[in-house]
C-alpha cells in the first residue's frame, strides 16, 4: 500500500476543501440571487472544469505558474523557489478544478430558498452578508454538506491535472491516483490493485452519504405557515 500517497491525497483534499468553500459560498450566493447576464457567464466559467479535459486546465495552470509568467516570477522573487511541480501548485490547480463541485450544489440549494425570507431579512436591517450567514446557510445545510463531500472526493480522485501541474514527486505531488498509474507502469499490479480497491470503497462511501443527505433534505419539509 502506498500510505505516503494516500496521506498526501488526504492532505490535498482537506486543504482544497478548506480554501474552496469560503470562496464558493459568496460566489454561489451571487449566482443564485443576482441572476443577470454577468452571472450566466460566470456560471459557465465555473462549470468549465466539468467539460474541459484535465490536461487543458493543467496546461493553463502550469503556464500561469511557470517562471515565464508574471505570477511565477513574483512567487520566485517572494520565496526563492519555483511554483510549478510543488504542493502549492497542486493546491491551486485543485481549487480551480473542483470549483463546480463546490459551487453547483450550493447554487442549487440557495436557488430553492424562499426569496421572501431574504427580503424579510433585509427589511429587518441585515446586510446581504448578514442574511447569507443567518438565513441562507442555516437553511442550506444539506447543500453545504454535499458541496464539502463532493469537493473532498473529487480532489482525491484527480489525475490529469495533478500529472500536468505536479508531476510525480513522492511526498510532494505524488497522490493516490498517480501512485496507481506509477505502479501499473512498473508492472506492480498487486499494489495498484490494493490502492485501487481503497479508492473504490472510498468513492462508494462518499456517494452513498451524499444520496442519504439529499433524501433527508427532501424529507424535511419547510414549515410554510
Amino acid at each position: 500500500m502506498e500510505w505516503e500517497a494516500i496521506e498526501l491525497s488526504l492532505r490535498l483534499a482537506a486543504a482544497t476543501t478548506a480554501i474552496l468553500l469560503p470562496l464558493a459560498v459568496p460566489l454561489a450566493a451571487w449566482i443564485a440571487f443576482a441572476r443577470n447576464r454577468v452571472t450566466v457567464v460566470v456560471e459557465a466559467i465555473v462549470a468549465l472544469p466539468l467539460v474541459l479535459p484535465p490536461t487543458v486546465l493543467g496546461f493553463y495552470v502550469l503556464t500561469a505558474l511557470g517562471t515565464r509568467s508574471p505570477l511565477g516570477r513574483w512567487w520566485q522573487e517572494l520565496t526563492g523557489s519555483t511554483l510549478a511541480f510543488t504542493f502549492t501548485a497542486l493546491l491551486i490547480a485543485s481549487v480551480l478544478h473542483s470549483l463546480p463541485f463546490a459551487v453547483q450544489p450550493l447554487v442549487a440549494a440557495f436557488s430553492g430558498l424562499d426569496r421572501r425570507l431574504l427580503e424579510a431579512s433585509s427589511v429587518l436591517g441585515r446586510t446581504s452578508a448578514g442574511s447569507l450567514i443567518r438565513v441562507v446557510l442555516p437553511l442550506s445545510k444539506a447543500g453545504a454538506a454535499t458541496a464539502t463531500v463532493l469537493t473532498f472526493a473529487h480532489t482525491i480522485g484527480e489525475f490529469g491535472v495533478v500529472l500536468m501541474v505536479g508531476g510525480n514527486i513522492p511526498g510532494q505531488t505524488r497522490t493516490v491516483s498517480i501512485s496507481i498509474y506509477d505502479r501499473v507502469q512498473a508492472f506492480d499490479y498487486a499494489t495498484a490493485g490494493r490502492t485501487s480497491l481503497v479508492l473504490l470503497a472510498f468513492s462508494l462511501l462518499v456517494l452513498t452519504s451524499i444520496y442519504t443527505l439529499q433524501r433527508r433534505q427532501k424529507g424535511a419539509v419547510w414549515p410554510r405557515p
Binding site: D114, R116, E119, A120, G125, V135, P138, L139, R224, P225
Partner: peptide
C-alpha cells in the same frame, strides 16, 4: 431596504423556519 427602518408584513408571513 435595510436602512429604511420600516416593518413589512408579507402575505405568507415569511417567518424564518430555522
Amino acid at each position: 431596504a435595510r436602512n429604511r427602518q420600516v416593518g413589512y408584513l408579507f402575505q405568507d408571513h415569511a417567518l424564518f423556519p430555522h
